[in-house]
Design a protein around this nucleic acid. Sequence first.
DNA 1: TTTATATACTAGTAATATAATAGAATTACT
DNA 2: AGTAATTCTATTATATTACTAGTATATAAA
Lengths: 148, 148
Amino acid sequence: MKLSTRSRYGLRLMLTLGASEKKEPVFLREIARAEEISEKYLSQIIIPLKAKGLVTTFRGAHGGYLLGRPASEIRLREIIEPLEGDLCLVECVANSTLCDRSTECVTREIWKGMDAVLAEYLDSVTLEDLVQKYNLKRRNKGAVEYSI
Amino acid sequence: MKLSTRSRYGLRLMLTLGASEKKEPVFLREIARAEEISEKYLSQIIIPLKAKGLVTTFRGAHGGYLLGRPASEIRLREIIEPLEGDLCLVECVANSTLCDRSTECVTREIWKGMDAVLAEYLDSVTLEDLVQKYNLKRRNKGAVEYSI
DNA sequence: TTTATATACTAGTAATATAATAGAATTACT
DNA sequence: AGTAATTCTATTATATTACTAGTATATAAA
């Protein structure tokens, strides 16, 4: 029950886009270098994010990526869900026809409960929340480096 | 990010033990038949549960398994955690030395948060809660079958 | 003390999913 | 045209999962 690298890299990718002050599109190469992730792999990961409208893309020379809408209007659930396929820990929760026992199964209610608390948590955090924490940490780190 | 069959089968195994009124040990074969799960596979799955003291075992003829302590004193987290290895969605949460960025990483705080809400939820449900729901459903099902 | 029957232990394996990599195609600015 | 970026389509290596098989060990009863 591990989160895939797609989700992990994908959130870092979105954080980088969100933290970028520029209004100019950001190259995937820059993100890849900053986050030490394969550019090719990131180019795969960004596809579902684009499909969901979370990023806007510009092709060709001087292309790149921008956030599709303000970070304050993007909830982490929207990022993780498409990257993970869905936010469903057990298949039968999303598709009850997979198992004869679904209607009477009480363990299924537990899997449902787990899905629910995860979804609720990821809905409660926006990308902007994350960007703010990120900027705060960077500022503090800088301060420490210059002190003494 | 799927829950393993080990966890799913393991919880059903524990539920079956909990729902058993008998004070006599239950054979794995019976559980396997009732739940339509390979007996051999169940015999693997039950090992960590035994190690945690959640089940008591009796070897030899007329052997079998019993709950190690009352169902009311077993929280689902205690069952799922050893079966899943741990309840950690991203490795770096449990072991911060895996990544240089751990201390400054803000996405890590999200993975921590996800782990936390899951653990909290599974801590809030006891095996007895599950057994009661199970018995209730069985009773209602019987009632429906006899009605009309 | 033998036999039957259960759990316990140790390996091995097939199938699936994950995490990439590779290269050609497309788009668009200069 | 040329360059630099994204996009699309395959392929592949690795790891994990979900088992299966076989042997060893324990114990109750005949």
